[in-house]
Design a protein around this nucleic acid. Structure first.
Lengths: 245, 245
DNA sequence: CGACGTGTTGATCTCTCTCAATTAGAGTGG
DNA sequence: CCACTCTAATTGAGAGAGATCAACACGTCG
């Protein structure tokens, strides 16, 4: 595959990306070192690795995770095209989490001090990045609420909805024909703090109930409304009700 | 209590704060609108509130949380002096979480666009803020690992260690005489995804085993080593072992 | 003094985990 | 083309960590 200039990045036109002017694009381009292609299941960053640069996921899926010494693993967030990777660790510091791909994937690699250069040369982009980082955190917050306080059924409903929405936003059809779903049930389990077996049973239950379907690596929401209800999607109702999905 | 100028902020000399030059201090000062004092248990930000400004916690303890519609609550992070509050929500957006104080507390209130002004006028401080935000996220990551994969005993050990370290860092004696511990067992439970009753039983078990003591609102670690071992503090060992506490 | 918040403990109950076994591809080598 | 191996999904059965239900102790406060 040919390397893509930032100017021609296929992600740029998507509605979720903040408009950037030519200068900003040139800046990003100048900080980009190269691209990196990995196969499904490859490790981008090892847990505890000390020299990880800054990446951007251009294509494919991946996830961030932490493990305990006996092997128990918790997936922290799933990464989709457009996500930043590596803002967390201060340069020179050990990565607090690992990153592994779920599919074949392409990453843009930036020089280590890119984060600082970006801030220095373009406060506007720096601002965007802190906002993106904060947004990342709010995704972890959501997961923490799920894992801490939702039942297995509710957690799974929540995960399906959120992943569907994120994946759908990257597609032209908005998910009308389902979205890719490259996770194994083990990934779902590790993302929700559940065991593999219970994840399987719960997933089957929801599927039999007609709430969703996973087939050939694609996810279809068959009753998004019911899923959202199950997940208590909009929390305690102190928030205004918004249309679902 | 008199308002304190940023230049004289008692937090500034602490080792954990990044040195700021006079100009940066003046900038922060110029963005600071006022101070706000709350009593223990007061709400700083309601879940779903739309107009929350940016705050800094100058004194006291607080916590961020989310709730489900049936009242189940998950505490996301505990906030200590020096922490930022409100970077998460984009201006004009609804707060994704609430903030409530655990003790009497003093907040510095900044104008809504302070985040942007800070970036614009001082890229260096902007950079620090994205780093701080990323650091906040890594704390949530840690909690997510606990809640998702650690047993009740392990979670509690982890929480005690982490809160102790954070609180000790704010004290001159580094925690030699214990640290303030203003949480009720309900807060511990809500922070770890446990029930109140089970939290109580586990806390008592660890206390009886001589690992810690909580008395008169103060926390003492009596066997930090054992707690760290229980918590599997440094994860999977791929990270270098560092001295504990 | 009664109401209330917090901590404590015992007795169930149940959701989720662990253990075990089976099925269904996909890939590999002979 | 078939045996063999591996991974992922499935399902049943039994075990257990943690939840829920109930009661009680203690201190504070109006």
């Amino acid at each position: 595959m040919k390397e893509v200039a930032c100017r021609d990045c296929p992600l740029r036109p998507l509605p979720l990306f903040l408009v950037q002017n030519g200068e900003e694009l040139d800046l990003v381009q100048s900080l980009k070192k190269r691209e990196l292609m990995l196969s499904a299941g490859d490790t981008l960053i090892h847990e505890g690795q000390t020299d990880a640069p800054l990446y951007t996921l251009r294509q494919g899926w991946a996830f961030r995770f932490k493990t305990l010494s006996d092997g128990r693993r918790q997936i922290l967030t799933f990464l989709l095209a457009g996500d930043f990777i590596g803002v967390q660790q201060k340069m020179g510091d050990a990565a607090a989490h690992g990153v592994v791909t779920l599919t074949d994937a392409v990453f843009c690699v930036f020089q280590r001090d890119a984060l600082w250069e970006l801030h220095r040369q373009s406060p506007a982009m720096g601002f965007n990045i802190t906002w993106l980082t904060a947004h990342e955190e709010s995704m972890v917050d959501d997961t923490l609420l799920s894992v801490g306080r939702r039942s297995a059924e509710e957690r799974i409903a929540m995960l399906l909805i959120l992943l569907f929405k994120r994946a759908a936003a990257l597609q032209a059809d908005g998910g009308a024909a389902g979205v890719p779903f490259p996770l194994t049930q083990q990934h779902v389990a590790d993302g929700l703090g559940l065991s593999l077996v219970h994840t399987n049973k719960t997933l089957r239950k929801l599927e039999r109930r007609g709430l969703h379907r996973i087939e050939d690596g694609r996810l279809y929401l068959r009753d998004a409304r019911a899923l959202a209800r199950l997940a208590d999607l909009y929390g305690d109702g102190r928030q205004a009700q918004r249309p679902l999905v």
